[in-house]
Design a protein around this nucleic acid. Structure first.
Lengths: 230, 230
DNA sequence: CGAACGATTGACCCAACTCAAATGCGGTGG
DNA sequence: CCACCGCATTTGAGTTGGGTCAATCGTTCG
């Protein structure tokens, strides 16, 4: 699986290779295995993190014990920024779903790096803005769309960030349970299972244990966009 | 109604009075009347805005024409930052619900101000982080909570940002229709109406035409937190 | 091989949506 | 000052998407 170099991460856009090297050099590194937690909701944070390799699932625990999957993040993605600049406690938990390496800059370091490289600050702002934008879309979806449509959109998003071309379609290259999909789309694992079964009968996807392969992406787009099925 | 001075806005936290004055001096000002739009979804943006007075409702239009209320903003609140640093188009529309004055810094100005006053950048980051945090909570609510609970939480949030003490309780000092509440909480105006009627019967709120007064805030908190009603 | 865990499927149910109709408030113009 | 109009709101009746619960099946892994 080809892994883009970290230097091409959005956080480093527009910075010289030398600057990026300096910034990377200021980070601490840490490795994690599958099912490790890189952070727990409520832990104090004083750093900004970046995934260097592997994949992490960020979840939020509701008061009543239900879990909500906020997002999956992979190489080049950052997390902890919200906490570092505002709340000082992790608002989410991060569970490793694929062995990972994580970089960390403590808050003071990041602040001084930003002062030295203003572009870094702008990039960070752009990243946070992008998150806000995504979440607004998700809120819009949850408020106005049917479950089937939300699941279709979630699969397409996942395909984009972790899709792998196969002989027959696009495999979402992540251990992804029905429960995960339910927590991403605000439904139950039962409903997800039913929808996927239906789509399997229609030849749109090929679901498996903790895996989903998309056979006809276009059909999924049709559902996601709520177009008349042609 | 006592209006906190703009200089105490979160954006200016930790900056000297002189710095704040300089930053404010760099902004353009503009006035709007009720029902004016300060921005339309899709318009190009190249500036960061701050509400100096009045109140604005930010809404997002879904593909199918349904509206979603993202938030109400008032004096000291900023908007447009997401677009300025990322998408370059307003992701939302802003309708004035109470005559308003708005400040604007174009992107280049804001960038150079941030370079001159690093704290300004940190504050902006903190504000964006706060937004992300709020939206995560909202997503969690939408995915896991009943409508009644979401309405209670929305009212409490509104009371906090636009509440006015009265002889009998707290009045939400905004023209706020059932439709608005429905679009904030992801339900229909019919359901909102029914819930408010029930609460009125219980003596918790006193609903009126485009207005809601909270008589027993504590009861609302009980519902919002899903505690056993004592 | 058996335990543990993910997934599937059926049966039932209800919170909330839809649609329709009536009511009442607020402003406006005669 | 009153009559009227438009719009927000209320309320009823009927419907349903999808949640809940329970039982079963299939796989993976110790």
């Amino acid at each position: 699986m080809p892994e883009a170099p970290l230097s091409s991460a959005p956080l480093f856009e527009g910075l010289s290779a030398a600057d990026v090297a300096a910034i990377l050099a200021a980070a601490h590194r840490r490795r994690y295995g599958r099912a490790d937690f890189v952070c727990h909701q409520g832990d104090p944070v004083d750093a900004v993190y970046m995934v260097a390799g592997g994949r992490v699932r960020l979840t939020q625990l509701e008061v009543d014990g239900q879990e909500v999957v906020i997002r999956f993040i992979g190489p080049g993605d950052i997390f902890g920024a919200v906490a570092a600049f505002k709340v000082t406690q992790f608002p989410v938990s991060g569970e490793v779903v694929e062995a990972s390496e994580v970089l960390a800059w403590d808050r003071a370091t990041m602040v001084s790096l930003i002062e030295r490289h203003p572009r870094l600050g702008q990039n960070l702002m752009a990243i946070l803005s992008g998150r806000i934008q995504e979440m607004r879309e998700r809120i819009g979806d949850l408020q106005t769309q049917r479950v089937e449509r939300r699941i279709a959109r979630a699969l397409l998003r996942l395909a984009q960030q972790a899709g792998q071309r196969t002989a027959t379609g696009i495999l979402i290259n992540l251990p992804l349970s029905r429960q995960d999909l339910a927590e991403m789309t605000g439904t139950t694992l039962y409903t997800v299972s039913r929808v996927l079964s239906q789509w399997e009968a229609d030849g749109i996807v090929k679901p498996g244990r903790e895996r989903v392969e998309i056979l006809r992406p276009h059909a999924l787009v049709t559902i996601a966009e709520d177009l008349p099925s042609p």
